[in-house]
Design a protein around this nucleic acid. Structure first.
Lengths: 195, 195
DNA sequence: TAAATAACTTAATCTACCTTAAGTCTGGAT
DNA sequence: ATCCAGACTTAAGGTAGATTAAGTTATTTA
């Protein structure tokens, strides 16, 4: 009960469910505690879980051919994440997902996700809105990557995600911004001195 | 009739509509022919149209403070586009949308879009899938921007959108890839000589 | 058909950011 | 307490890509 308050309230902002519908939905969720630094999804594994974060912070990232890490997203309490492409198409994951602080999550299997959408079509609406928001967020990121330099991107990042800045290593922030940790260090130094 | 075949078939891949539902949907669409180089959405205007491309190619782009243009997307026949963030939130557009060849489109007003989703909830499913695909596409673009250099991005671009390459100026391709037209010219030169 | 405008190329110079490498600081594990 | 590995800093030298500017080729437009 307790545990499902946040997710139900979050969903309730977009659709209204009857008590039975809420109970049915909750019955599909798998509760899991994830200690800091635990990897819950690994490249190559089938990624068949959609993850809702109850508390904590997770990070998804990928590795390129040369072993360079790129952070795809940081996700905080009340966010959803997965390797969306691979979840939807039931392909092996191209990404890793790990906890970057002690977290607890609720997970929904792909099969249950599909059945849920059929059983309670209101969830189509909920996930449409979720996908819409994810889409517009990503599009903004693409544009900012193209139009802003590293320092401008860093400044926007700390304004947009102040909670993350305080919890995450600079190396990981650099890999989100697409720069090296060394260069981020230099940017940070520039920001301080005179003001 | 003729004109609506493509859009109905495209929607029919994801949901099945009754004849009345199809007719209702079609009654909401506004048909418009858009000559090459016509701008149909301008920064600052309220963007309250969702656009389906029947034939032709459109481009959306934005301008940064220094007047630099960034192409957000190229959209071909059977694609949907708009300034999604501004359409959904009924804000003034932050982007421009123009035809880059003679095109014809079907448009759906925001108010009709909202009513359609209520009247025929199956459309929630259709647009969920549309948003999903848009999201995963954008996420891939973000990652490629971070991990690939300009030449690699160009090579992927021409593989993924061969039809666009033949119809669009290099200046516009450069602004999609986030490089200058001069540097794209250099990349293209490198590609030819020996092979 | 000519003139004008825009697209594309080429090349020199410049800069944002990377690479490498060495050094400091920190938090866990023993 | 000590050791160690990882996080962060600093700095020298290198490179991808920008900027500027001039020249060439298309495409409009008159």
């Amino acid at each position: 009960m307790e545990i499902h308050n946040a997710i139900l309230q979050s969903i309730g902002k977009h659709i209204s469910l009857s008590t039975e519908e809420e109970e049915h939905f909750i019955s599909l969720l798998i509760y899991k505690e994830i200690p800091n630094k635990t990897t819950i999804i690994t490249e190559g594994q089938i990624c068949n879980k959609l993850i809702y974060i109850n508390t904590g912070v997770l990070r998804s990232y990928c590795l390129d051919g040369r072993g360079k890490e790129s952070t795809i997203m940081f996700a905080m309490a009340d966010w959803w994440l997965t390797d969306m492409y691979c979840f939807l198409n039931e392909k092996p994951s191209m990404t890793f997902i790990e906890a970057i602080e002690d977290s607890c999550v609720l997970m929904l299997n792909k099969a249950d996700f599909d059945r849920l959408l059929t059983a309670i079509p209101k969830f189509e609406r909920f996930f449409r809105i979720l996908m819409q928001n994810a889409y517009t967020r990503e599009q903004l990121r693409s544009i900012e990557n193209l139009t802003l330099n590293a320092e401008e991107r860093y400044v926007r990042f700390i304004k947009k995600y102040p909670q993350i800045v305080s919890n995450v290593s600079q190396k990981q922030i650099a890999s989100y911004l697409g720069i090296t940790p060394e260069f981020l260090s230099l940017i940070r130094k520039r920001q301080l001195p005179d003001k």
